[in-house]
Amino acid sequence: MFNKKYFVYAAVAIACGAGGAWFSDMQAQQALAEASAAKAASMAALPPPVAALFRQQLKDVKGADQSLGQWRGKGLLVNFWATWCAPCVQEMPELSALQAEIQDKKLQIIGIGIDSPSNIAEFAEKHKIAYPVYVGGMSGTDLSRELGNAHGGLPFTVLIGADGRVKKTYLGRLKFDELRADLASM
């Protein structure tokens, strides 16, 4: 009798534990589904080119995959460039200095290199770039076209507000007085 009583208690405890684990798993799955639906809805609210940008998974200069969606909700200055593009290289020190100025203003500069991973990594090692740089490769040109670069020229820079809307695009070497005025009006 004594052993049967403990056996019943153990069986009830195991059943309750299993039921609790099942219930917890169901809640976690529901929360995941709700979060996924919320993310999809928020992406649907973005203009298609910006949504395409935030869906990108690009390698950084160290070869690690990075989601550009990590920048969602911040103002973003996206600079498309290449190592062989003289105006691109000329504006990079000024972009680095600008990143230092704006780091506390919920604005981030990112660079998307239209070049090979090895060229971009070598360039980044040689130059001190104060903002994240990603490898877009040749498909980066397509992304820049989606964002308004009709001719595929470089450098091409896109100013995106924290709301995910394209505020302005710049083709060619940046005029930093104009850019600072645009940033001040955001």
Rank of each mutant, 00 (worst) to 15 (best):
Q30N: 11
S36E: 13
A18M: 08
M26V: 12
S36F: 01
S24D: 06
W22P: 00
A35W: 05
M26W: 07
S24V: 09
A37I: 05
W22F: 13
Q29F: 03
M26H: 15
G17E: 02
A33F: 02
C16R: 10
A21S: 08
A10Q: 08
A35N: 12
S24E: 06
E34P: 01
S42F: 01
V12G: 02
G20D: 10
K39G: 00
G17W: 05
E34L: 11
Q30Y: 03
S24N: 13
A11P: 01
A33V: 05
A31S: 05
M26L: 14
A33T: 04
S36V: 10
A38C: 04
L32C: 00
Q29P: 00
D25Y: 15
F23N: 09
M43G: 01
S24R: 13
M26S: 14
S42P: 00
G17Y: 06
L32R: 07
A15Q: 05
Q30D: 04
V12M: 07
A40F: 02
A13Q: 06
Q29A: 13
Q27R: 15
E34K: 07
C16M: 15
A33C: 03
W22V: 12
L32M: 10
D25N: 14
A41Y: 05
A37G: 00
I14Q: 04
Q30E: 10
A37E: 10
D25V: 14
G17F: 15
C16V: 15
G19R: 09
K39Y: 03
A10G: 13
A10P: 05
A31P: 00
Q30K: 15
A15S: 11
C16W: 12
A41P: 02
A31H: 03
G20N: 09
L32A: 14
S24I: 12
C16T: 11
A41C: 06
M26F: 04
S36I: 06
A37V: 06
A41V: 09
A31M: 07
Q30T: 08
A13C: 10
Q27A: 01
F23G: 05
A41Q: 12
A40Y: 02
K39A: 14
A33M: 04
G20A: 03
A35Q: 14
M26E: 11
K39D: 06
A11S: 12
A35D: 09
Q30S: 07
S24F: 15
A13S: 13
G19W: 11
F23D: 00
A21G: 08
A33K: 11
A10I: 12
A35M: 10
K39P: 01
I14D: 04
A28E: 11
Q29V: 03
A18E: 02
A33W: 01
M26G: 00
A18I: 02
A13W: 09
A28S: 10
A28F: 04
L32I: 01
Q27W: 03
A15P: 00
A41R: 14
I14L: 14
G19M: 07
M43W: 08
C16Y: 10
A11H: 06
A15W: 07
G19Y: 08
L32Q: 13
